[in-house]
Write a protein that binds this DNA or RNA. Sequence first.
DNA 1: GGCTAGGATGGGAACGTTACCATTCTACCT
DNA 2: AGGTAGAATGGTAACGTTCCCATCCTAGCC
Lengths: 347, 347
Amino acid sequence: MADRAPTLHDVASAAGASKTSVSRYFGDERERLSAALQERIATAAEQLGFSPNRMARGLKGGHSRLIGMLVADIRNPFSVAVMHGVEQACRQHGYSLMLCNTDNDPAQERAHLEMLNAYRVEGLVINPTGSRQPALDAQNIPTVLLDRRLDHARADVVGLDNRLAIEMALDHLAAQGYREVFYLSEPAARVSSREQRLASFRHGLAPRGLHGEVHCQAPDCADESLKAALSAFIQRPAAAPKAVLCANGNMTLAATRAFHALAIRPGATGLMGIDELDWCGLVEPGITTLAQPTAAIGHSAVACLLKRLADPARAIDDIQHSPTLMARGSTAASTPFQSPPAPSPGR
Amino acid sequence: MADRAPTLHDVASAAGASKTSVSRYFGDERERLSAALQERIATAAEQLGFSPNRMARGLKGGHSRLIGMLVADIRNPFSVAVMHGVEQACRQHGYSLMLCNTDNDPAQERAHLEMLNAYRVEGLVINPTGSRQPALDAQNIPTVLLDRRLDHARADVVGLDNRLAIEMALDHLAAQGYREVFYLSEPAARVSSREQRLASFRHGLAPRGLHGEVHCQAPDCADESLKAALSAFIQRPAAAPKAVLCANGNMTLAATRAFHALAIRPGATGLMGIDELDWCGLVEPGITTLAQPTAAIGHSAVACLLKRLADPARAIDDIQHSPTLMARGSTAASTPFQSPPAPSPGR
DNA sequence: GGCTAGGATGGGAACGTTACCATTCTACCT
DNA sequence: AGGTAGAATGGTAACGTTCCCATCCTAGCC
């Protein structure tokens, strides 16, 4: 049992070759070596169980082959799905991912950023959710922002086409006959995606003859305020059906819990949200969502990052993806009970 | 804008100190330096924006301060929750996490293991789900296995007390008046946790006067076979109520979808599963689960790993955690409709 | 036949740190 | 006063790679 991992040098002397040749073999210059030498090195390396030390390689060569990713909330299924795409794309391009979860805590975010910098990651994919003062200014690391833009940072942005999403949602609600819309969001200040969605909501009402009401709150705070607000909205007399529109998955979960606690069945009062979740087809009568193309978002984030790595000076990208409508029973005002036609579309 | 990150040497000359002193300052020997020197170094480092290069540090010192984690399915909420705990614990102990997702693919698993080895991670936390031939043999890296043990690997194991979990489930089902239990699992062969749960199920039936039936299938295969089997089970005449017991979260989701497709309301036919999920309180009438203490599992995995790092020769640990029963309407046979008393317990 | 082109290989000097040993200086003891 | 302990600091050799340059050899050319 080796007490120390074998080194390039060990392989070299075992194969009767020079360090340089072994280095070439494991680098991308293998074909420059004669067949005989390749053979000898391969055998020796195999026998010793050699694997090149990435740390040393990174030190000398200056590139770590590492990409760092910062996620605000690792338990958010949307983040996880995007992460999955990012990881796949990294691997496809020969990079490895160092993943960090900040739990929405700026202090942790700062600490993680420092640590990623210490490992000399070549690029950063950051998905901030909580409002914060990014410590990005000092860093010179190419960065792609996920879902949220930062005013003072010169960085590419990849995310959802928020205006389009809200317009699709309003179109759908209007088409289903709803006229009063209760918009439910986490506090929007300083979070660009929330701001964009909220603004689009406000602008999109009048053209469709809709009335709106906005309610912002943290999803994890006591549910009482949400229940109270929702209850007031629903009880208020109105000529046409009402609906609740949730700005993201967290709020959809909160709203569904509130509906449940108030014993309101979605449908007659509409319920719809951005972000597709496992259970949206399962809660009666199925909850309508706008699914984000998470894999595509993850992949294009990495693609974008690699483009910037290749050309640091190029213009800033802002890639906006389109959502997909998953219409279900919760927005079927006219048909009070509708058995879902097909099993819920899985991923 | 610095074209190159500042080095120890830069700081040293800026502060009029030696490399050694600066190294001591950023290592753990800061107090050995005079106050004046500390001050000068701090100022210089601050001004240059210096952050020690972890790669170089790891190279020289021999420790990377890195822990690698392999997850079989990053989209499984259970894995994510454990991962969250692992990451927290790592950070608390000054380690950083390199996370890899294998998507249940042995080839990817092998590749990731190789890469983690190349970065010279000091320890490994592995959560394999699919059956596989681990490439661990060659590695000399201290490893903790999550949820599943490997016969040929000398490694600690951390997971659920599977026997206890199944007994709690059977006790609960029996107490609620169910007599026939349909056990739903992913294929158990070669996956120790599934095997243990299945065996415990078989052994636990008779003492409680229960009858059982076992159905194994992959959760992602066409739902038809599951629906058919479930439908047959339910239609079979019996004197006492029947229940379905799901071996993990994936199967709970599959079973819930099947119930939904067959238009069966859980309760009269019981439904229960291992693993607590976001939506279990939301699907009518609430789905009873056995929640795993995911944070505790993650933390104790890291604790276990660090203990082995400190003393590689110590005896192998096998830490089994106890689940918590979350009783809900889906196992209330006697009360056909029961409004859930409290909002669903969050994680 | 001497010269060169170019392919194959090897020898060192980095990369940014840490570990070890050496040096200097002050203060205290006998 | 001479000696020494110990604190404060500096110099230098690694760590395992890659990169640049040198060397060797074979073959082809005039």
